[in-house]
Design a protein around this nucleic acid. Structure first.
Length: 713
DNA sequence: AGAGTGGGCCTTTTT
DNA sequence: GGCCCACTCT
């Protein structure tokens, strides 16, 4: 039974020329996307375009915005979708349900959380809080410290998280992913259970809980499931290849009544299996949803044929996937370049020099991106960029909201909303002199018994003289915050407090900057009326990211019009595109990451990651890698095997001049096995000792772990 | 309680 | 190179 007759609403003829602005494949999806639909959209095939036009189509055909649910993976994607729908309709789609899985779940739990033990005013624990709480749980278990080492809080949590998201038992996860700590199984299970109990007690959810608790609620509460199922007439999911079983089931239930579920994705771009993304969700979609339509978008509007040829050549080495032959329509351009550099510094200098050259050709910095596998791979390059005064925007890595003083402020705000938030109390209390871990814990438990923050600060825990003063200070801060009014004013009441200012000055050499940071934070808070909304935005939209070393930008959204080079992890670059893309650190061990070899299908995932990276480029693509690495011991590393998977005729190899003759003789064609040499700090030009066959003469000095890696290869 | 020291460890990706 | 943890001393 269809609820909506999809005709343009009377009196408002469609403003959009769907047929003219979309290709036939895309138009078919937009016009014909009712019922369960799987849209297999290759990189650069206009996936976002198709989804946004589909949403615009639904809205123009009379579907109320608040009955459309559009789920994305990142906040960036959510914003982008919203902006583009708005641009199409020339009006903001007020009431549309768009956001990440986590933020939508949060929104629903704030509405219906009174049906769970967490209530509606639960706190959200970020990674650090969650780890701290886990540390307490581990400590409480009093595990014998002799002999083998118990896994750290973050390891225990990742085991638990993976088990939840992949729907496996702890035993299974330990066996398949962490065999080294299997001996601790009983303790791990116990500690995880204590962690779960503590979270309920403190009315605090971690990121996983946001999804899991909503799912549990939907499964157990027939009334709510029916209600929400009715409400959402159309459910659309972006990046479906990255959903895990929990998310897939959530989507299934939320679309369960009207069955208008349209999922978009590209199995070749599934790169989140580390958080239990289940590629089968997309591969088996047609099986799971009988009668599902399958659409394919195979025309690539982004990249030159040369770039696509390289990406296709590499991804072909993966087996389990829908076959897709991306067609290029962009005119031919340059072949991608492959550039071995002697070390990280030379690699950085090469990228730097190419960027300067591009700038000479009037290329705007914002049209250039440097992508890498792991956040720290950008270090050497950042150094070069700073030396040359090249402005850049860094995506990934440290987040503004994760900075210590910002978190201090957030902790106090969280207490105001949820007095049982033990981790917030702990953080707030430990700022005060005389309040160490033990006393803070005791006091947090005491305070958590109160009804709300107001009554908590009117009570007197039994404390020693020094700690009692600490408590009075905290009471004073919270008291001032309670009567301040808006979130922004509440925040200012915090940063204006004497005891916090004293703490900052005693603790940090740059206390003044930090105070100014907090003022920026307060400015940001001004867009919120409700404390809860502000706190949720802070915890769930971490992409308000700026780097620590960059006080200029602190607390401000990066201006769109400012021209900056983009540095980004590949994960964060997904869905984006640039004219010129550098992929750096393409060396074995770094990318693919050495750990990937140990994981089931790990290498295939790394290869997809490579595919994602390469398909970000529109015009020019550069692959660079350092031939050596290390500080004390210099090691030769091999180029990424993905580079070897590219037929030679598809790329052009650049030889850099180098002061080290032995390096210049090196190329990926003549592989040199790994070796190491004791580095003499007084000798900046390490001599390389290889025998006639290219073998190192001193293999005995190789660390055992390194030898093992070689055998694995 | 909290500063200071020494040893083991690891280098991943995000909400 | 640098982090994090456990342990020790004041």
């Amino acid at each position: 039974m269809r609820e909506f007759v999809l005709t343009p609403t009377p009196g408002s003829a469609p403003k959009i020329d769907y047929k003219g602005e979309l290709n036939d494949e895309q138009y078919a999806v937009v016009e014909n996307g009712d019922g369960p639909c799987l849209v297999l959209a290759g990189a650069g095939s206009g996936k976002t375009r198709t989804v946004t036009y589909r949403v615009a189509w639904l809205l123009e055909h009379g579907v109320p915005p608040d009955r459309i649910l559009l789920l994305t993976f990142t906040n960036k994607a959510a914003r982008e979708m919203l902006t583009r729908v708005e641009a199409l309709l020339k009006t903001f789609p007020q009431g549309l349900w768009t956001g990440t899985f986590h933020s939508i779940s949060n929104r629903l739990l704030r509405m219906y959380g009174d049906r769970t033990p967490f209530g509606r005013d639960f706190s959200i624990l970020d990674e650090e809080d969650a780890n701290d709480l886990m540390k307490l749980c581990i400590k409480e278990r009093k595990i014998a410290v002799t002999g083998e080492r118990f896994p750290s809080a973050s390891v225990v949590r990742s085991v638990g998280s993976y088990a939840i998201n992949a729907r496996l038992s702890i035993a299974e996860v330990l066996q398949s992913r962490h065999p080294a700590i299997e001996i601790w199984q009983d303790d791990i299970v116990a500690v995880l259970s204590a962690y779960g109990t503590a979270k309920v007690q403190q009315k605090a959810m971690d990121f996983d809980d946001l999804l899991v608790k909503l799912l549990e609620l939907l499964k157990s509460d027939d009334d709510l499931r029916q209600k929400l199922g009715n409400k959402f007439a159309y459910v659309l999911v972006d990046e479906f290849q990255d959903t895990n079983v929990i998310q897939a089931e959530l989507v299934d239930l939320l679309s369960g009544v009207n069955r208008n579920l349209l999922v978009v994705g590209d199995d070749a771009q599934s790169i989140y299996s580390f958080r239990a993304a289940e590629i089968k969700n997309i591969l088996d979609f047609p099986k799971h949803y009988e009668g599902a339509q399958v659409f394919r978008l195979v025309v690539n509007y982004r990249s030159t044929p040369e770039i696509l040829a390289v990406a296709n050549a590499v991804i072909k080495n993966n087996t389990e996937q829908f076959s897709k032959d991306l067609q290029a329509v962009v005119p031919s351009g340059d072949k991608p370049l492959m550039v071995p550099a002697s070390d990280e510094r030379q690699e950085a200098q090469y990228v730097m020099q190419q960027i300067l050259q591009l700038m000479d050709e009037d290329v705007k910095l914002g049209k250039i991106a440097v992508l890498f596998r792991a956040a720290f791979h950008s270090q050497a390059l950042e150094f070069e960029l700073m030396r040359n005064n090249i402005p850049y925007e860094y995506r990934g890595g440290l987040k503004f909201f994760e900075r210590a003083h910002v978190k201090d402020a957030i902790a106090h705000l969280r207490i105001l909303r949820n007095v049982k938030d033990g981790m917030a109390w702990m953080r707030a209390l430990q700022i005060q002199p005389g309040m160490g871990l033990a006393t803070a814990n005791k006091t947090a438990n005491f305070a958590g018994v109160s009804e709300d923050a107001q009554s908590a600060i009117a009570s007197y825990p039994a404390l020693g003289a020094k700690a009692a003063q600490g408590w009075r200070n905290t009471v004073e801060i919270l008291g001032a915050m309670l009567v301040a009014g808006s979130p922004a004013h509440t925040l200012r009441a915090f940063s204006a407090s004497d005891s916090y200012k004293k703490y900052l000055e005693a603790e940090y050499p740059n206390a003044r900057e930090r105070i100014e940071d907090l003022e920026q934070f307060a400015l940001f808070a001004e867009q919120y009326d409700k404390l809860g909304d502000f706190l949720d935005a802070v915890t769930l939209t971490g992409d308000f990211g700026v780097r620590l070393e960059d006080p200029e930008q602190t607390g401000r959204r990066t201006e769109q019009n400012e021209d900056k080079l983009i540095l980004s992890t590949i994960h964060q670059a997904k869905g984006l595109e640039w004219d010129n893309v550098f992929i750096i650190h393409l060396a074995e061990g770094a990318f693919p990451h050495s750990r990937a070899y140990a994981e089931a299908n790990g290498l295939a995932e790394e290869r997809r990651l490579f595919y994602v990276a390469a398909t970000r480029a529109r015009q020019r693509l550069y692959f660079t890698y350092p031939v050596t690495t290390g500080f004390e011991n210099i090691e030769i590393r091999q180029p990424s095997q993905f580079l070897d998977e590219i037929p030679r005729e598809l790329i052009e190899e650049v030889r850099l001049r180098t002061s080290m003759p032995a390096w210049s003789a090196y190329s990926s064609a003549s592989r040199v096995p790994a070796y190491r040499k004791q580095h003499n700090p007084y000798d900046d030009e390490p001599t390389i000792v290889l025998d006639a066959s290219g073998e190192p003469t001193n293999p005995k000095q190789m660390p055992a772990s390194f030898l093992r890696n070689i055998e694995d290869l």
